[in-house]
Amino acid sequence: MGLFLNWRHLLRKEFRGFFVSPIAYIVICVFLVVSGWFFFSTFFIFNQAEMRDFFQLLPIILVFIIPAITMRQFSEEINIGSYELLTTMPVTFPDVIIGKFIASLCFVAIMLFPTVAYAVFISLLGELDWGPVIGGYIGALFLGASFVSIGLFASALSRNQIIAFIIGMTICFFLTIIDKMLFFLPESLLGLFQYIGADYHFRNISKGIIDSRDLLYFITVSFIGLYSTHLVLEQRRR
């Protein structure tokens, strides 16, 4: 049997796990209420049939929502000890990590799905340019993947879910606002720090321009997050 064979079973287990507890429904509700309210409170003032404001708002909302989704993934397992049951079954760390990662990402996708209704609604009011909307959703998934991997990393660090949430949120928040802090920095570092900022890359995609550099950025961040998770789990065995 190969290295990555059992992740599919783990994925299914983790994904079901979201929906047996009420937390999933609460998180989805909070997300929809917050994003809907902030978006529509200014939507009619601008009188434009577009979703730019929604996608501008999205990163900062995901900064708080995604670590809340991922915080329990490893913390809870380590805390109640099921981690020992899990890792003494014939699975590898990559199986476990990939399973949890994809399950969480699917959850993010499901959470985002109802907001497609906004786009449909707006297209009834006026002439909606679908390009940026589709780009925005693709970007949101890539951004979500990055944040999920960071959230998993934070969750592996601590057996306390609150601590995992705060660490995850802090890292995601830092990545999101860094390119808004550029005026504090010397000019020579501007390019680098702009490139590090997640929001900068997300803005590019949500304009409807899908650039491989931006996708590469999100893939890199996800990979670093997942690999760090792997290292933390290895360290935990000692």
Partner: peptide
């Protein structure tokens, strides 16, 4: 393991099914 630390949220049947899949 000591004191059987299982997933609290899962149903017994689902849990055993999961273990069977992994095995």
């Amino acid at each position: 393991p000591e004191s059987a630390p299982l997933y609290h949220d899962m149903l017994v049947y689902d849990y055993l099914g999961f273990v069977a899949d992994i095995r």
